[in-house]
Design a protein around this nucleic acid. Structure first.
Lengths: 350, 350
DNA sequence: ATGAAAGCGCTAACAG
DNA sequence: CTGTTAGCGCTTTCAT
């Protein structure tokens, strides 16, 4: 900056003004400075300016998720990036792999970088350590899972209700023996979805059979194996409710390998790209990941804009997308009133 | 920091030493300082330290891609994040949507933030404006597409060879009329893949029929329409080569809707999650996105470590994954020597 | 409209 | 082993 000032024959202060589009600078000087900037390839140092300016803005927000390679989270990141861009901020993004220690470490680093806000898809169970930072102006929004021991905004899906609706849909189709393929039991979303499953059984007076419940299926391979085992049991399930996308993939593979894909009903939580291309099409509870990101970003920047209203938990609605696999009738199906599943030429994907 | 020093009864310098794990500090003092740090919730300001320290390190690298919601790029980001973490850096990530202006703008911002390195999946055609920065120590690695008018490291796939191999595979299966579904004509990868397509036809003395070539299919819907039109033509294609994942999805939909999925061969560039679940399984040229990210990151950090060897273009190999759709025989197929396609119970996905 | 001086939070270099 | 001094690149404040 000094060099630029020297070359343009002005004081550093004038250079600063030009760089920051201060309208009070003489047009002639402005041009001279800009020329010098160009000649010397001067690039203002954001770090330095951040750290001198009164408002302390860093124009950075942090984003944490379990895994960006999961298309759901990638979509969320995309939406968050869009919001950040609209507010002239850049995004520090990190994948933390359901590792609580790592998550805490990353958050610490980000705070050291003086991010203005944090958008967290966090799988841990205590966020109290952020209390002080929130008090002193840090904006934090939780997506997909609510915060624990911390008052902060969050955006979550209606997991329990949606799971319940999906399972009731299967029961309405004539099923009573419905398997549950779950994710980590420690995950809040999985707990909620499992509750929804239980709710649905209860409302129809179907007793819960623990042999039909498989939890902690963290890979599609594990879900495939679990489904294979379930199918091999005597008095196995006639329908499967899968609580997340990877387990849905595993279930599909197992059903196919057993030749049961047209006989066993399947509803999965979370939509996926090829759900509408498979045969039968896969019935899913579709979430809108972009909505998570967008809403989360909006709330975050509203807070940064000075909004001090009470913290909110925003619930985004999901929708049951019927594509065929969830409409395969079960043994208690009444007389058909409609086609049991959509004709196979129709492909809808979201 | 001053407050911490005061509370611990030491000088700020000692606090700095403690925070930076300088081993020369007295253990007793160290503990006192750490207690004060804890009590005051002191968090060292990375910005300030970056900008004072001699080596000028920011522990930040920038990552640019067209779209994180594309699973291919998301996988790349994951791998890059892993490398960054291993080298104690954080990642500033940006989606630029094939927008050249925006790309330049984002790069400018990142340089203003003094990122140590840049990993770019860039679709633009001139990167000369980075020359000076590279000269003065900025590490830049291009992924997927090589740089233009700039000497920098890059990691690319063997697009042309792989596309040629795929198309020859179709011809070996008895096809002569093979459609080409392309991405943006301006995209280097698409140009390469199209060249591969042409190469293959030439080696078998099959004249190129421009009516079979559809370019600029940027959405799966456009590819679906293009395929539908191709199938409706008299003397249409008996096989389709799709140059990227979205067009492959579109082609599959069109083939299904026309009831031609078992009659028209299909090979797609880029693997996708459900390719092995569809029926017929989708034969693809599989790239390894994680390899791009890993290699790119390794090269970047090697450069940052002081490596001054000549810039390299690293070519990562692809593999043809035969799942059925690419093995549907064409009209010029000879007598079968093997099963035309794999039995439908086998699912391989990568 | 422009400039001079001070200082943001931290660390390099040196002194004790 | 610890403290002092100076200054990184910029912006604030105040003077001109």
């Amino acid at each position: 900056m000094r060099d630029v000032a020297k070359l343009a024959g002005v004081s550093p202060m004038t250079v600063s003004r030009v760089v920051n589009d201060d309208p009070t600078v003489n047009e002639a000087l402005r041009l001279r400075v800009l020329k010098a900037v160009d000649q010397l390839r001067y690039r203002p140092n954001m770090m330095a300016s951040h750290f001198r300016r009164r408002d302390r803005r860093s124009f950075t927000i942090g984003f944490l998720m379990p895994d960006v390679a999961n298309p759901f989270f990638a979509e969320v990141q995309r939406a968050v990036q869009e919001l950040a861009r609209a507010h002239n901020c850049d995004l520090l993004s990190a994948t933390v792999d359901d590792d609580g220690e790592r998550e805490k470490g990353v958050i610490d680093r980000l705070l050291g970088r003086r991010v203005e806000g944090l958008i967290l898809i966090s799988t841990t169970k205590d966020h109290g350590y952020l209390q002080a930072d929130v008090m002193s102006g840090l904006a934090v929004v939780f997506l997909d899972q609510p915060p624990a021991f911390l008052a902060a905004d969050s955006v979550v899906a209606d997991n329990r209700k949606a799971a319940g609706r999906a399972v009731r849909h299967l029961m309405t189709g004539g099923h009573r023996r419905i398997a549950y393929l779950g994710y980590l039991q420690s995950a809040w979303t999985n707990q909620e979805r499992y509750q929804g499953y239980c709710d649905a059984l209860r409302t129809r007076w179907v007793p819960l059979d623990p042999r039909l419940v498989r939890q902690d299926l963290v890979t599609s391979e594990m879900a495939e194996r679990a489904t294979r085992e379930l199918l091999a049991e005597e008095n196995g399930p006639t329908a499967v409710f899968s609580a997340w996308s990877r387990s849905t993939i595993g279930a599909i593979k197992a059903l196919r390998n057993a030749g049961r894909q047209d006989a066993t009903a399947l509803v999965g939580f979370d939509d996926f790209d090829a759900a509408g291309l498979l045969d039968p099409g896969v019935t899913v509870v579709a979430q809108d990941p972009a909505a998570f990101g967008r809403l989360g970003g909006e709330i975050l920047f509203r807070r940064l804009g000075g909004d001090r209203s009470p913290m909110t938990q925003h619930v985004v609605r999901t929708s049951l997308v019927k594509r065929g696999s969830g409409e395969i009738p079960g043994p208690y199906a009444g007389p058909r009133r409609t086609e049991p599943r959509a004709p196979s030429m129709v492909f809808s994907n979201r």
